[in-house]
Design a binder for these strands. Structure first.
Length: 211
DNA sequence: TTATGGATTAGCT
DNA sequence: GCTAATCCATAAA
């Protein structure tokens, strides 16, 4: 049985998420995603994010307006927007300031609960595998953390009573690289993807740095 | 009621 | 590098 709390983690406040998506995306690098399961805690450091600017961003889901699907993005900051894509995958976003603005969490560095994540991913033993396959990519990290729309959409990521939340542990992020967003067809050239420079858990291949 | 396409991944060649 | 798998929300009718 794991301890009932994770040492060294401190909650973020609402103001952290009450800023523009570009700012929140950058600030989220180095923070920790925490999942409380029945038996243990899963934690992973955020190493890659993308900003979606809201209604006026043609690549954002919020561009369709405030619908049943996207209503969380238009709600209070710091809540989880989970959507299902390509018939197979869930992706985790955080609502933030702006009209429908949000940040997509694209990759994590696994910290605690690695064996549990591996089981969620359908991998029997994590030790012998490449750890990057656990949480490197938005669909992969959602599967590793057991994130689904039914369970987690609309969840408050700040509240300690939530089974899914984002916290800080004092880690200081190093240099940050900014690149175009990945996998989108509209506004694909905008420099709105943020990664920790040189981190091996970042998804995708070679970086196309802009600045 | 039906048709369409997508903020991905894994498994081939 | 290329493509199938796979399903939900939307939009059109």
């Amino acid at each position: 049985m794991a301890s009932s709390r994770v040492a060294g983690l401190r909650a973020l406040d609402r103001a952290f998420f009450s800023r523009r998506p570009q700012r929140v995306a950058r600030e989220l690098l180095g923070k920790v995603l925490v999942r409380r399961t029945n038996t243990e805690f899963l934690t992973g450091r955020i190493v890659e994010t993308e900003a979606y600017l809201g209604e006026d961003d043609p690549a954002a889901h919020a561009a369709a307006g405030n619908t049943a699907r996207t209503s969380v993005l238009f709600g209070p900051p710091g809540h989880a927007y989970v959507y299902f894509i390509y018939g197979n995958h869930y992706c985790l976003n955080v609502s933030c300031e702006g009209n429908g603005g949000g940040v997509l969490i694209r990759a994590l560095e696994p910290l605690q609960g690695i064996e549990y994540m591996a089981r969620n991913r359908g991998i029997a033993r994590a030790g012998a595998r490449d750890l990057r396959k656990l949480t490197s990519g938005p669909g992969r990290l959602a599967q590793a953390f057991g994130i689904t729309r039914a369970r987690d959409n609309g969840c408050d990521l700040i509240s300690k009573s939530s089974s899914l939340r984002i916290a800080k542990d004092g880690f200081r992020a190093g240099p940050i690289v900014v690149t175009p967003r990945i996998g989108i067809t509209k506004a694909a050239e905008e420099p709105l993807r943020f990664v920790l420079e040189g981190n091996p858990f970042v998804s995708g291949g070679k970086l196309r740095a802009i600045s």
